[in-house]
Write a protein that binds this DNA or RNA. Structure first.
Lengths: 142, 142
DNA sequence: ATGAAATGTTCTACTGTATAACAATCGGGA
DNA sequence: TCCCGATTGTTATACAGTAGAACATTTCAT
């Protein structure tokens, strides 16, 4: 009846993908009220911590191509959460800032994110386990 | 100069996604010679361990929608790796099997996968760390 | 002054994924 | 036995994510 899935269960990439999909599913549900996608969350969080940076910098930090980043910022700007300002010293680039509304939004956003994170930490078995997971994921990256 | 990315580094879903992308990048490079995608690898591995199962069963086990699974099996069948056979007792469903060529292919496929896995285990710091990672990912799922 | 590089942008294409609809088939209950 | 709902494979379609090429503008180093 039940399939033998033992071999795939040992494939790290496969397990990472399945786990990520589960976590993202929770994200979409929790953020449906704010209509926020994972990439948009990351962009807002990065701008909040790094106001005034160029589009290209934020995009590169998140592994998003310049070309695809335009639509994301357009969307956030239309919602009044983010603002493009001309940089005085370099007229090619746009500096990104949160608006007042964006800062307000990100407070609520971070509350929801904290809930999600608490739930995940509980599932993992505690903060030490969370730290262990993050440490292991660190080692996968360069 | 460098962006402050500390807050995002603590977001489990984000870290899972980035790690998964890195691992998949390695997968695509290692399997470019075989022109095999992650989903195709998983399908072949599952059929190898569970010959004769219905399309719907294999698809569901991998979290792939029936509709999207058709093209995957079509591709593997055109390459002579997989075979659809009518089930005697249920003429609605197709039973999936590896062909002789498919079994031969999966030997080479598993060799490459073992190399990838060895490399990942080395990065993680040893087999115990790999087991720990898998155990933590288990807890994220139901 | 000139040419290379950076930046934001548009367009395009491909992949992955979700939903709806359909025909054929199966199975259970009246 | 007949009928109705469920299952299965399939096609068509739509949408998000992502990648690459090309472009105008601007900067910068030589």
């Amino acid at each position: 009846m039940t399939l033998d899935q033992r071999s795939m269960q040992q494939v790290i990439g496969y397990r990472l993908r399945r786990a990520q999909l589960i976590v993202f599913k929770g994200f979409y549900e929790a953020f449906s009220e704010l209509e926020l996608r994972p990439a948009e969350f990351a962009v807002l969080a990065l701008i909040a911590d790094n106001p005034g940076r160029k589009q290209a910098e934020i995009a590169a930090a998140l592994g998003i191509k310049r070309a695809n980043f335009v639509a994301i910022i357009n969307g956030l700007a239309e919602r009044g959460l983010v603002e493009r300002r001309q940089k005085a010293n370099d007229r090619r680039s746009h500096a990104l800032f949160l608006t007042d509304g964006g800062r307000e939004f990100s407070v609520r956003m971070n509350e929801i994110q904290q809930e999600l994170e608490r739930d995940l930490v509980a599932r993992l078995g505690g903060p030490e386990e969370r730290d262990k997971l993050i440490a292991l994921l660190d080692r996968i990256g360069v």
